[in-house]
Design a binder for these strands. Structure first.
Lengths: 143, 143
DNA sequence: AGTCTTTCTTGACTCGTTCAAGATAAGTGG
DNA sequence: CCACTTATCTTGAACGAGTCAAGAAAGACT
């Protein structure tokens, strides 16, 4: 996946194509669920001396354009991912902090159908499953 | 609801009964979905000069004991509520920030039944519905 | 009451994130 | 291809929710 893809994406989103944005976009694609600090490092591996501010700005711009999505499990810093528009959710391991993607519960977006939402017009449901990942479950059982 | 109730709750939870904790517990009951700063103010109305640290400590202790629950909509600070153990969720208005309780989607805790959670043992699902509250929907339509 | 342990007070501090001002470079028309 | 306009980036400071630490205070048990 050459930079051309990302350039294209930026153009189509009406964003200017800049080196920092390409680096950040590539970093998010390469490191799903990464926090900002990791993304700064990853972006610097592609483009030395990018300021942290540029990364924050880019992430905001990309988030606004829908090219990346951000989420923030309680007790964690902001995390970003490039998988957007498919209404998937996340499962977080209480023990090791691992995060995996989880497709919508019953398969057909039931997450948007709150039975009684008090007249709210709901347009997005953000779901985080808390639990124990397979690895930690095994470790805990072995204790 | 005299303080006796809260005293009882603390005792049963195995926590020491202290003035700050009673004040914080009462504050959370009186102001559902309030953020920490509001709770500090509310607690000070009941017990002047409580330190913010005592409020933080109390909230942590109460959360650990299951007497209060904390949640944190993206972009917001921590919020607390006294309604626990019934697996309800929240709807947040993007426009005015209002938060209301929403009972579980289909009525029978489907929120815990992620179809494919990659082997995760899920013990809690945290759901936040984002949308527009009735008031803001009307205001927006009138524009 | 006396003693022990938990909890509270005070105050400093961390860290993720944001703000601001000036420098730089992407896009656009000539 | 060059100049122009404006969005974006750099640098560096600032902010604020939340945490840490040391000593003082006050529950709980005997």
């Amino acid at each position: 996946m050459p930079d051309v893809d990302f350039t294209q994406q930026l153009r189509e989103a009406g964003l200017r194509v800049t080196r920092p944005r390409l680096a950040v976009l590539a970093a998010v694609h390469a490191h799903p669920h990464a926090d900002t600090e990791s993304l700064i490092s990853a972006a610097r591996a592609l483009l030395a001396d990018v300021s942290h501010q540029a990364v924050y700005d880019s992430l905001h711009a990309l988030t606004g354009a829908g090219l990346v999505r951000s989420f923030k499990p309680a007790g964690s810093v902001a995390r970003y991912e490039a998988r957007t528009g498919d209404n998937h959710h996340h499962a977080v391991c209480r023990s090791c902090g691992a995060i995996v993607d989880v497709d919508c519960a019953v398969g057909h977006v039931p997450c948007l159908t709150a039975s009684d939402s008090r007249g709210f017009v709901v347009d997005e449901a953000e779901v985080i499953y808390w639990g124990t990942c397979p690895d930690c479950a095994i470790t805990a059982a072995a204790t």
